[in-house]
Amino acid sequence: MVDFGFYIICGAAVVLLATQAVSNPTAFVQITVFGLADGAMYALVALGYTMVYGIIELINFAHGDVFTLGGYISAAILGFFAINEGSFTAVNLIAIVLVFPVVMLIMGGINITIERVAYRPLRNAPRLAPLITAIGMSFVLEGIMFLWHGPATVHFPDILPHGPQFQTTIGGVFVTFKDGFVMVTAVVLVTLLAIFINRTKLGKAMRATAQDRDAAQLMGININRTIAATFFIGALLAGAGGMIWGLYFNNLFYNLGFRTGLVAFTSAVFGGIGNIPGAAIGGVLIGLIAAYSDSYIGSKWTEVVIFGILIGVLVLRPTGLLGMRVPEK
């Protein structure tokens, strides 16, 4: 019955979009391209939220800041290379290829440390205690970035191929190399994650721990290691996301992760929190919705639209799009 309401709302949205699409198809497709690129980045961050929530039921408020810190660190490391912002050189390519794994590993290490210091000691504490330390860690990470570069917007080197020669125009719609890069990288990373979760032993351990921690422990799974691995993998994706964000927008600021994190968290809930493909799809959908809302409703209403959807989804279809129950306590 409630699902019925959900479908009606979805249908109405599709019809509204379709009328826009018919009236100006070029602009519609163009906006879709923007939305997909943004959504790919939200998806990368949302995965970290959904994995951590799935396994220890913690809304990890620090995750968005891990994402931003990834961008800051990659900008710093890129500074060591003789990169050329004006045109695309071989050095740029080497720098990008090298910095990606380095940043991901650094962020993974940082996130494991955060988990070890701030969350693990509180595993048996009252439920809200780790939530507060998560908020605290979010302040700490923002504080570090603030101390590092201050409140101003930080420039991220513009080293991806850009300019008129690096974009294709199909029927009035242009797709830049940057758009393609963001989408392809995100798809590759999500696919790798899915393979990891479904095919490896550690992935299996993570799924088992998420389902029932005590039972998993009885089966001989090292819970602490599994949870640490979850944080590590979440941060790999967030670190990559931060760097991709920087490469795409060329701007970062210290509290970027706060709002991006909220939107990514919404994506995770939208897709069904705890559900990995759900988070990826949710991220892309939220990116699209934000882009459509910016264009067709007005960007000042975008936040209302996104969070209205969040509330609507929870009330009408609490399992999210792909469905997985929020663990009951």
Binding site: A129, P130, T133, G136, S138, V140, E142, F146, G150
Partner: peptide, 20 residues
């Protein structure tokens, strides 16, 4: 500039020392 960092640290420390 340290303000953010300090506030975060204070929160984390208090929670670790007195989770209740």
């Amino acid at each position: 500039r340290l303000q953010f960092l300090l506030f975060g640290l204070i929160l984390v420390m208090i929670m670790l020392l007195r989770p209740q």
